[in-house]
Design a protein around this nucleic acid. Structure first.
Lengths: 266, 266
DNA sequence: CGGGTGTTTGAAGCCAATCAAGAGTTGTGG
DNA sequence: CCACAACTCTTGATTGGCTTCAAACACCCG
């Protein structure tokens, strides 16, 4: 099937216009590669194994890498706006991205966090239903929309991978609905800490240490609470000995079991 | 980097051919086919056009229909339990199904509503992460797990369809996260009514009438509220003239615009 | 040092939950 | 057809948890 039958104006990638994003092209690198080889830029990429690129052949990687570019996004930079047209997809190489929705009066809800090597973008939809913002300094690999959609059409394995990720995100979203709808403030905060712990240290059984990727304000927006309530509940968990906090962001969990129990997860 | 350097599409085209190409009436299609006629049970099925079966060839339908069966489920009957192993998938032919999660202490949250002709099931996962219960009397068409997974593997169009539905459900789940996390009780109830109105009468511009498929208790579990609060907010909306209620379940919305505004949706 | 930002803590207020009772609806059986 | 029970929904009174308002504290960087 032909994909790009009607050439027209490209809707602008707004991240390009943001001053704080650096962007180095890969063309020089990929042009040196012989056909069939994995592009040099991809070789060192963590996302190539867990991410969408793992479904691609070396030849497809070469082709895709010609049109893709890495970007570094500083913490706090919004790189996709709610309602904005989507002209690119990307893989997260490093960092954490928050997906959020805002109401007309400014109330905000974070509806998802994405970590490396997640794929970002909403296939088959022209316009983003939420904003994407780097929670901490983040690196992404950006692909033009058309290139990805062509690859999806010709690579069933890729669609399967994206389908699986969509289902995983759906599971996570529904888990979070239970948290938002039915848990107390303390359980919400504990749930959030347990979520971050499981991402920064998936193997850990008992003890865990990590840097919070989100500010108190972000945590509040993720949990449907206010900053003050988040702070109070963190203090409460600290006083109960379930967590230790240093420098606001550094958290130690001596006993994950107690944290999970405080989160209300069986 | 140059900003407007690439040619591109102006309008977003769904690159994979949608199976609704087969929209020419089934009579002509099946009369053209000798060996692979559409099974009699499928011919009258509404779900065959909008649901997963629309991605299948007549031959595949014949094969699948040999292993599938219709089932009628009375309102209030739970037919998949949380944590239960999944041995089948199904299409909703008629009715409404609620998907819910419960906590150890009994707190419950409805995380999704499914209407005809939605596909139900969680592909690629052995065990259900939530319970499924008929909200009203419901009919489903049940397929064995193996049969569907085989079809997915050999029919890219089917995986695409399921992928699209998963993305749609993900969008809906995230919309609902905003409702759960950031809206007031009144906005929540109005959001729920607007949701039901849009499902029972997708065309309606101004006025809408429908039967609520959920009891007050269910609505409360969907909105993260208590029965009493739901009842009070319904009364409030009624007294404000935004809705009319008869026999508890029958709702009339004279002005959808006012309802949507009360729901806090721009 | 001083301004800026982010976090914590305190006091007061409010929205939704809880507790409690009454009203309406449905179904059953005499 | 009515009586009665069981259930659902509504309404009222009170409580409590989270928000709001306010101020102090901590950290960073010029």
């Amino acid at each position: 099937m032909q994909i790009n039958s009607h050439p027209g104006e490209l809707t602008m990638i707004n991240i390009i216009s943001q001053p704080r994003i650096r962007n180095d092209t890969m063309d020089t690198l990929s042009s040196r590669i012989q056909n069939g080889d994995v592009p040099a830029v991809c070789r060192s990429c963590e996302a190539r194994h867990g991410g969408v690129c793992s479904a691609l052949t070396p030849a497809q990687l070469v082709e895709l890498s010609k049109h893709s570019s890495r970007r570094t996004i500083d913490a706090g930079t919004e790189f996709i706006g709610q309602g904005e047209s989507i002209s690119s997809y990307s893989n997260i190489l490093k960092g954490v991205v928050k997906l959020s929705k805002v109401m007309a009066d400014g109330r905000q809800q974070i509806v998802g966090l994405q970590f490396a090597p997640d794929f970002m973008g909403r296939p088959f939809l022209g316009e983003s239903r939420m904003a994407a913002e780097a929670a901490i300094d983040t690196e992404i690999c950006v692909f033009p929309r058309r290139a990805i959609e062509r690859l999806i059409a010709e690579t069933p394995g890729l669609e399967h991978l994206l389908h699986s990720q969509a289902l995983k995100e759906l599971d996570e979203a529904r888990d979070w609905m239970l948290t938002l709808g039915r848990k107390t403030a303390q359980e919400k905060v504990a749930s959030f800490l347990a979520l971050i712990a499981s991402h920064s240290d998936p193997e850990a059984e008992e003890k865990s240490m990590f840097e919070l990727p989100l500010s108190r304000a972000d945590i509040a927006d993720f949990l449907g609470l206010t900053i003050e309530t988040v702070s109070r509940q963190m203090t409460k968990l600290r006083k109960e000995g379930i967590i230790q906090i240093e420098n606001n962001r550094h958290v130690t969990v001596p006993d994950l079991g107690r944290l999970v129990a405080a989160a209300g997860n069986d």
